[in-house]
Design a protein around this nucleic acid. Structure first.
Lengths: 167, 167
DNA sequence: AGCTATTGAGTTGTGCACAATTTAATTGTG
DNA sequence: CACAATTAAATTGTGCACAACTCAATAGCT
């Protein structure tokens, strides 16, 4: 009841957007919640677990490299890594060659954690009720979507050129 | 190289988990980023937009009802609604019948915002490069997944019964 | 009526995300 | 060599998510 002659009415489109927004938001939080519950045993949060995963996979890494892999900036990583250090799972050391860089490496406790973490994926799979294939499929879709979103030039349409095309 | 004889080795499973974790996390953040950029024009954050969407759709709602619809608790909503009120988009008023309840209703400015918000979904669709159908499909998958995750009894397996089935 | 239990918002504290800024180290260039 | 530009972390400030708790109002029960 706003304008819009032939196309879907605004109210309809906004309703759809609400569904999409909400689904994404809710799914993200639901996953976070499941990981939180499962990771509580390990004493890790979800982002901390992500950091440990890349460290287990690649060994010592600089803050910059971790950030590049997880697409997290220092504003997020610096305090997170301090907490991981306080928990005794990693150590941070200024690099000798380049004093700007900080190298993060897992401690013995951090490495030991990997054994227990091996159980996490199975529990996640059980919680989702999805097969590994289905999970892989979802993951692929999400990756493609993320790539598009990250690459999207939002300046295409600064709310002006696209403004009221039907008005 | 940890244990695991016939099944996928732990390292492999953890690598897969890293991919899934990361994809979800990254997708969620990428979407958030796109919405953030688009909503900046309206002066809203992504969760604030979600709240306005349900208010536009249903009119005045109690904090409790908004929370039920968006699955957000008062710890998140109370400060968020205060900010929306400070922005002049909603008003909060203690209900007369039940003094515990607070009713939130859009102001004139909040209602006016709806017109401008009508452009948001199209811009999102453009950024994703997906058709409305594809978006709908993704949304449906995510909703089902969320339902499963929210309903999942994580106590099934408190990291003990499932522990080292192959060890 | 009187008392307990429950309910709806709000508050507090922790952690993450992100923008913007700061600091120190390094690189590049004249 | 000196100086400007760049780079890597860290810091600051805002907002969201969630757990745990408080507080006042209501509902339910005897």
């Amino acid at each position: 009841m706003t304008t819009t002659p032939d196309a879907a009415p605004d109210a309809e489109i906004l309703r759809l957007d609400r569904q999409i927004c909400f689904s994404l938001h809710a799914a993200s939080r639901a996953f976070n919640g499941v990981y939180r519950a499962i990771l509580k045993d390990l004493g890790l949060t979800y982002p901390q677990y992500l950091v440990m995963l890349v460290l287990w996979e690649h060994g010592d890494l600089s803050v910059k490299t971790i950030g590049a892999r997880l697409r997290l900036d220092s504003g997020t990583l610096s305090p997170l890594l301090k907490r991981l250090e306080a928990l005794g799972f990693v150590e941070r050391r200024r690099s000798a060659e380049d004093e700007r860089s900080v190298t993060v490496h897992p401690t013995a406790a951090g490495t030991a954690l990997r054994e227990r973490a091996a159980l996490v994926p199975r529990r996640i799979a059980a919680a989702t009720g999805l097969s590994l294939e289905e999970i892989g499929d979802l993951q692929e879709r999400l990756s493609m979507l993320t790539a598009k979103l990250d690459g999207a030039d939002l300046d295409l349409d600064p709310l002006g050129s696209c403004a009221d095309p039907e008005d």
